[in-house]
Amino acid sequence: MSMLIDFWNWLPVIIQIVIKIVVIVLPLMLMVAYYTLLERKVIGYMQIRIGPNRVGFKGSLQPIADAMKLMFKEIVLPTKANKFLFLIAPMLTLAPALAAWAVFPFDETLVLADVNAGLLYVLALTSMGVYGVIIAGWATNSKYAFLGAMRSAAQIISYEIAMGFALVAVIVAAGSLNFGDIVRAQQGSAAHWFWLPLFPLFIVYFIAGVAETNRAPFDVAEGESEIVAGFHVEYSGMAFAAFFLAEYANMILISALTALMFLGGWLSPFEGTFAESWFAWVPGFFWLLAKTFVFMFMLLWFRATFPRYRYDQIMRLGWKVFIPITIVWILVVAYAVVNKMPWWFNT
């Protein structure tokens, strides 16, 4: 063991960082791949179908087959497209979706970069994704793609505000921008988690997150029956796969962030109850994963049971409903924190 540690310390720092990144990104990519399978299976059963069941045992190798197919497909460049922007756009979308995981704490100590402004970093990076979408829609030089890009830009920007405001309240309540500290501020029991005192913001944040990832019922940017596939209508092969990966990585990120900030992250749900010692052996990472899965499943559930909102209705919801709710609740939370209301705000 000590030899391994010596070897690790002997490695140049850059190699150490690369290894750490691979350790995060590789499972994430696998998770994304199998999330698509889960989506097809879950929605399939909701729609009285079976879903993919031909490749591997009950379709278990389907994501691998999809990835292989996409990798070997040609990336078709439309004649009138701007080549440079057309190719840079998928990268611009995918990179922030992966980079945001750098500050994400998977457990008490398991974090790549324990940045004090972690939340700000994540907010900044998730906003970057929209550039990829706009550039893709612009560079394609197609009316459908452009419509999709414009919608996506307007939608993401409006929901970013509601999302940011919801996070302001989290910051106020936790007294820190560091994800680790935010989770530690929720210690105590399941009732200490922020979902209860910040309940309206919890809902707003999750719904804004759905809108931010362009998922149903807010998928107007791709709206299949309206603008065919929106901004990525002309993309094929790996360029399309990059958008696809980014979308699903973002979905997982939003689910994980919701779990982290409102459901106590890696904290055990039995904390502070009689059952605490029974589950003491469960690693915190498992609890985080379980909570994340709840939201990941809900994202799929939404898709199977909600029609798409109309574009103006989405805007109305964002500006006239969510933003007022968040502003009012920020004031409530600020008042509670200043007056040190137990249990939540005694920081």
């Binding site: 929605i43 909701m46 199977a304």
Partner: peptide
């Protein structure tokens, strides 16, 4: 057409 495919499959 409104993006909800479940009733269609049902």
């Amino acid at each position: 057409t409104t993006g909800m495919y479940t009733p269609m499959f049902w």
